[in-house]
Design a binder for these strands. Sequence first.
DNA 1: TTGAAAGCGCTAACAT
DNA 2: ATGTTAGCGCTTTCAA
Lengths: 342, 342
Amino acid sequence: MRTITIKDIARELNLSTSTVSRALRDSSEIGIETKKRVLELAQRLDYNPNPVALSLLSSQSHDIGVIVPEIANPFFAIVIAGIEDVAFAQGYHVVIYQSHEDYEREVLNVKHISNRRKDGLLVSIATATKDYSHFKSLHERGFPIVFFDRICDEIDTHKVLVDDFEGAYSATEHLIKQGCERIFHVAGPDHLLISRRRLHGYRAALLDYGKPIQDDWVVSSAYNANNSLEVARELLAKPERPDGIFASSDNIAIGCHAAIIEAGLSMPDEIALIGFSDLPISALLNPPLSSVAQPAFEMGRSAAELLINLIKNPGKYTTPISNVLKTSLMARKSSLRNVSVE
Amino acid sequence: MRTITIKDIARELNLSTSTVSRALRDSSEIGIETKKRVLELAQRLDYNPNPVALSLLSSQSHDIGVIVPEIANPFFAIVIAGIEDVAFAQGYHVVIYQSHEDYEREVLNVKHISNRRKDGLLVSIATATKDYSHFKSLHERGFPIVFFDRICDEIDTHKVLVDDFEGAYSATEHLIKQGCERIFHVAGPDHLLISRRRLHGYRAALLDYGKPIQDDWVVSSAYNANNSLEVARELLAKPERPDGIFASSDNIAIGCHAAIIEAGLSMPDEIALIGFSDLPISALLNPPLSSVAQPAFEMGRSAAELLINLIKNPGKYTTPISNVLKTSLMARKSSLRNVSVE
DNA sequence: TTGAAAGCGCTAACAT
DNA sequence: ATGTTAGCGCTTTCAA
């Protein structure tokens, strides 16, 4: 697997490597004739500069690292597509890392990213993470970081998120307007900010509409369908069932959806259901799942733009931006009862 | 962002860099005392070897590249999890590339992988790819490649796949045994081997059971639910509807599922449906989707093992292995009619 | 047991 | 307009 280097070209053309290097980078101080000869040979030999050497020289890799909990979660897959969209156009390559919701793994990922001289980091933190020092020390060393979705409030850098409170509020409001009286919330893990904000939105809506707030109407689930399926089964087995459920994510909602069907209950009449994120699959369920749509692709784009900005202006202190994106309510059959128009 | 190098340690300890290097690698020719001092200081300074320098030196990156069409496809996400499982344990890092089913993109990915001195490549080819020369030239230069799932027959290297023919055969057989008479097949794109093999399995089963084979009972769809939803809508609008559908993948089946519900047809009584892959979501649909399960995680593990083997034994010619994994039929409500037991 | 020097591929002063 | 030299961080002969 011998690869062509600048040396090969120099030898063949009886030039020094620096001349070749300059010719290749189209430097103005190289003779037009020489330039042509170099370019032609490079072309013929299929010369490719060795990025590793470049990286060693410049301490830049033109790679940006992205840590997400799971790529299998379509929400993150779409965010990544948005990130790649911007990064690719700017000449950066996106290296994807999965924390698998595990703290140790996340720490390892961060270490890898820092050691491998990635130019920056985009991250949505793992459920298990309660200590943020691995991010903090990186940030303090001046390493460009942007948080998205599952952000960390303790670190003063750019963030991209949606208005979780408002999204949750409108989802709950929607259930209220559909005539639901016993609205439960299947929340995400407590310590994640998004879980708490969505919970607060749920509570605020109930409060505003004069509905009782019952602590035992809120149960918690991991952000995946397997876990929520179990949680929902228990919920539905209780004597006092909900007649409406707001799930903290679509994955959670999908588990609830399956549990409701399994229990032989009708949706939305006996139980109305709404999720959060509007995954592509949601509209294809039976009945189609209502959800609070998040602009995942746009979130990825925005995060990448902010990060690249940070990378290109090193040291320059810029006030951290928190870009809060809008959600929109997608009301579908899983929650739309035949009530008088709102 | 100054980072600690071997030089810093050498200076501080009044040693040469080579001594430090040797001490760090626990060379036997270094005094026990010196070793201790070096190790301690390295620890205290949080020294991390620069992998970029190592990579330039050794032409190895300890990275392996994986190209998949889309990480948003849960099948590939699971395969990747399997790959990471093996790679991680062997000290390799997995760099994920998406072709987005696009040929140009795939070529770029291959180029990146080769330029960046990745140690090997695992790949499942894009739908749009009809020319394999980018893989061929890499392979001819001795670069380790293993294909999985969407393999390329023209290149003589390790492959990991499932028995698509048999899986498709048993799915079709299952529909026949459920009493279906008009079994349609929503196939994948023609030129993909997996599509063709599944189509052949479908045909073979019909033939064996003395059922007619009708060309217009086979329609083609991209491997995603959006496209298959449209295809299925057309199918169901025709005067002579199917009473059974075998879809070439679960994503395709999910679109069909939604179309069948949308058309108000009952599943499995009016139309029985079965897919291929058994994605995690499939069992959660309403009605739950029957499918041919593929061991995706195992496929990833096997592919990674074969690749690392190839990497560790460079040049050594080994007869290419095709590891064909078993599928298993998951019969669920979308196809299970109340017929006498098979 | 340790050090000096060369080199991986490339670029950027600093010559000429 | 082109060449020489040094160096990015590290390992590895070769010397001592």
